[in-house]
Design a protein around this nucleic acid. Structure first.
Lengths: 232, 232
DNA sequence: TCCTGTGAATGGCTTCACAGCG
DNA sequence: CGCTGTGAAGCCATTCACAGGA
């Protein structure tokens, strides 16, 4: 009753992939690609699951969201599964990415080799600093932030990565949205408000470290407790 | 029946905080700290929830994991809640962080101002490149990777951030674990294998972009379908 | 009366065991 | 016979509506 989009009901292409499964699919894709580079042609769910750090049933269930393309009694064709995941994730054509903010982080992102090999191409760089504007980074000339809208249109960028200070993030984010960018990845340590139609993802190092600190503290407390409370 | 650790059942201090709630708590903390800097002393769950981008019930439930320190009919004391979250996350004492890999990314991380103000201090930098070793980054001298173990011991680092190429990540990770580091944040685009006792978190830009691509593709397909399918 | 705190219900993810096909 | 594919069950977390106190 919930999904009315099935025209044939043969392949689950209209189904939405659960977020947790989606994140894992990207991991499988990476493992498969490195297997392919190493010349491996076939792999079982058990081996692939171990390489990806998940349980075999989880792996099979995740792949089943895309369809059934394994060979029973044998395993998976590495190239085929890689291709199917790529297709499901929308990586068959290249996405054009603009990087906003060319500090150390922006430079690191611009030079990230994983970009070009995996369906993403950096097409524009922006910065507000006059000393940085005009310089060449990773083969691209840095544009002034004043030209954001025009350069986005000219390059046809449809994704943006924000590597800017917290204070200016929301303003730039609004400009990106107004310019028609529907997918944004932000490294700025602030909560950004965007319309529901825009996909926003956040990478936040402070959050990650704080989560680690929480677990580390818990581990220490448990240790202390088991020291002092020698009693079942 | 599940939790047998309650000695008094008054304050939920022995309870484990659900992962999703934990991640949100770090966001609340950031919002609260910026409110505090702005001089705000009180805030309602509704306002705080909006600033953090969550629903009010979610916020209240999350905070209830730490105890009850709001005033009914009034709201929350900004400073108090900030302090409680900090205590729960283990941020009352400073964690000593070593950064492994001083490329553009490592440099960006070393210079990240959020570190010092929020319970984390960078105490050591490592790199394999002889050209980088010995140089000063963010007020610290870069040590050669050969001195990893000795420098970790000397500085008392108990957390590590890895900003290294995929190929060398597992080897360095093993060395960190062997040296007693129990909390690792990795930016390397590979699946790292660690003992269950070690907390490993991963930040993966490729994964984030791929997830964005998936949603962007879905949005496009939906758009196309509603165009062409006037009626099957 | 207001806003917080929480118990109950919903929904989704993971796990399991078995069916299905090469 | 081996390994994949999947339906069903169990479990966990989030969500909601209401109770509870200042």
């Amino acid at each position: 009753m919930t999904h009315l989009t099935d025209t044939e009901a043969a392949k689950p292409s209209g189904q939405e992939i659960p977020p947790a499964a989606l994140a894992r699919l990207t991991i499988y894709l990476r493992v498969l690609n490195s297997l392919m580079a190493a010349g491996t042609e076939r792999i079982s769910s058990e081996q692939l699951a171990e390489s990806a750090g998940v349980s075999p049933p989880t792996l099979r269930k995740d792949l089943s969201h895309l369809g059934s393309f394994g060979t029973r009694g044998v395993g998976y064709d590495v190239r085929l599964v890689s291709q199917e995941i790529s297709a499901a994730l929308g990586l068959m054509h290249e996405w054009k990415v603009a990087i906003v903010g060319v500090g150390n982080l922006g430079r690191a992102l611009a030079g990230y080799s994983g970009f070009s090999t995996k369906g993403f191409g950096v097409v524009a760089l922006f910065d507000a600093d006059p000393l940085v504007v005009g310089s060449e980074v990773a083969g691209l000339q840095v544009s002034p932030i004043t030209e954001l809208e025009s350069a986005l249109r000219k390059t046809g960028a449809n994704m943006a990565v924000m590597a800017v200070p917290a204070g200016v993030a929301q303003g730039l984010c609004d400009r990106l949205v107004a310019a028609g960018v529907m997918s944004i990845l932000s490294f700025a340590p602030v909560v950004l408000q965007v319309p529901a139609s825009v996909q926003l993802r956040k990478v936040d190092m402070a959050t990650e470290l704080q989560i680690l600190a929480y677990h580390a503290q818990r581990a220490q407390e448990t240790e202390n407790n088991s020291e002092s409370s020698a009693r079942p």
